[in-house]
Design a protein around this nucleic acid. Structure first.
Lengths: 139, 139
DNA sequence: TTAATTGCAAAAGTTTTGCACTGGC
DNA sequence: GCCAGTGCAAAACTTTTGCAATTAA
């Protein structure tokens, strides 16, 4: 999503461009991995920006409600979020515990059609995580 | 997994067949949805079995270390677990919040090969969740 | 100005740990 | 009897809520 588009979405919700919000949008825009409340606090600290943990949680909820970010759940990690659009697939290294978001088209459309037919389940979204070893951790 | 096979795995780890463990194996064996510590406590209560929450967490860890169960992470739900082998795919209804485990073969092998080639990521496992509306909640 | 945002304190929920006691085999 | 399993209390984390103070527009 473009920065301009993000700002537009936020304005629509009567959102203001505050110090913390701006920094968080920046973090989400550049991160290659989903972010947790705690990791966001650490990133803020590096930039010498002080913010209360409560503010981060409230901001995460706001950005999620606004559709700017979405939640990601990965085994062995805390509740995390990433920018909406495109992503939703992750490579989770069981060695160094790093998580990399990868954007790629996959062929789950036929699977989703099958679920609608056989299970009468109407898929609107999906998430896919691969667990294994990254290049560095493969020895 | 067969009950006999489960018991064997547990014996190998010097595990004993206790009241709580037996009940939990039964729950996991029959549940069609992943179970959380809290839902297990509720199931135990229905059977008039009293157990401390700490015991449940310790048992979950034991069964996970033993390879009997594995963790499942689903958006909007607490940390949950299900019996290992086969499953790993879930239909998550955004209406009633029910989660159904479904076993099916999928065609991610070529995707995993691609990840090894392009990303040098050695996949050992994956998890796939579909979010949407179940039959009842589709109106 | 004025409504959104924030900080702080407190509460609620989840998960882990230490230690002494109990119970399966 | 031995050692795995358990309960209890307490601690460590994570997330939410209420309220008063602050600030972007």
């Amino acid at each position: 999503m473009e920065t301009a588009e993000l700002e537009k979405k936020i304005r629509e919700r009567n959102g203001r461009m505050t110090r913390v919000r701006k920094a968080m949008l920046d973090f989400f825009g550049t991160a290659e991995t989903p972010l947790t409340a705690t990791s966001i606090l650490e990133l803020l600290a590096k930039r010498r920006i002080t913010a209360n943990r409560t503010t981060i949680y409230r901001e995460l909820r706001f950005l999620e409600d606004t559709g700017v970010i979405h939640e990601v759940r990965i085994i062995g990690h805390g509740r995390s979020f990433e920018l909406s659009g495109g992503h939703r697939h992750h490579l989770v290294c069981l060695g160094c515990h790093d998580v990399k978001s990868v954007a790629f088209k996959n062929h789950l459309d036929s699977e989703e059609e099958r679920l609608l037919r056989d299970e009468r389940f109407r898929v609107s979204d999906h998430s896919l995580e691969f667990y294994g070893l990254c290049d560095k951790c493969s020895e």
